[in-house]
């Protein structure tokens, strides 16, 4: 589903964020991506969504080399991805409901179908009773869940999450991981970046560990900071 082949990413100014990264994620797999901040986790996720482009190597998503996609084709790639951003990127000039409906408006969904899907997504993350609120009035955990609702409303096959439990206490983090696992159960491919040791305790889930831009060969005992 997602495959990196000898990917290098250097930012303008010379900073080498990723060095010779190769890995493969199968369809329906759930994978953690870990490492210290600055290890290149966010960069790796950005390469998948073609927010950044690799300097060499290839990034394949659904067998499509996204590193060389034309500007015009990018929107259609991103519609297949659900992205949960580290900084949420919620819009505070509109209600919770209107935040979640945005991806459907972009794809041109019919009104009644959109409403149904938005309510289903909000129900999934437990925010159905807050649909008319402004996101600014939500707690950190609720904002994170709103961000998840917006990422899944389009029913993407791949879900990328950048530090989804970053600033949350254990209880909230656990809640969110439970939501992710339920997506995993229905066959969504998930790549979740985190440095949360509690989360990584979960056995049976593959961990990709980054250190200074390089993939560690033996990830399990590599990096829990």
């Amino acid at each position: 589903m997602i495959s990196f082949n000898h990917v290098n990413k250097r930012y303008p100014g010379g900073y080498q964020a990723l060095k010779n990264i190769s890995f493969n994620i199968d369809e329906g797999e759930m994978v953690f991506l870990t490492g210290h901040s600055g290890a290149g986790k966010s960069t790796l996720l950005k390469l998948i969504a073609a927010i950044e482009r690799p300097n060499s190597g290839s990034v394949l998503v659904n067998n499509q080399n996204v590193g060389v996609l034309k500007e015009r084709a990018l929107p259609y790639l991103r519609r297949n991805l659900g992205i949960i951003f580290q900084d949420h990127k919620l819009l505070f000039d509109r209600s919770v409901y209107d935040n979640v409906i945005l991806p459907l408006q972009i794809c041109g969904f019919e009104h009644r179908e959109s409403a149904k899907r938005v309510r289903a997504a909000l129900d999934k993350v437990g925010l159905l009773n807050r649909e008319k609120s402004n996101p600014i009035s939500l707690s950190g955990g609720e904002q994170q869940r709103l961000c998840i609702a917006r990422a899944i409303v389009n029913r993407p096959t791949i879900l990328l999450a950048d530090e989804p439990t970053g600033n949350l206490d254990v209880e909230y983090a656990q809640e969110i991981m439970t939501i992710f696992k339920s997506f995993h159960q229905v066959g969504v491919t998930l790549l979740i970046s985190t440095h949360d040791t509690n989360v990584l305790q979960d056995k049976g889930i593959r961990v990709l560990s980054l250190k200074l831009g390089e993939l560690q060969t033996n990830p399990v005992d590599a990096e829990p900071s």
Binding site: L74, P75, R78, I83, L102, I106, R150, N154
Partner: peptide, 16 residues
């Protein structure tokens, strides 16, 4: 600006 940025990230075409 923010809305445009978010829209681009979740797959909005330039025309949209």
């Amino acid at each position: 600006r923010e809305e445009i940025e978010v829209s681009k990230l979740i797959g909005a075409t330039n025309a949209f």
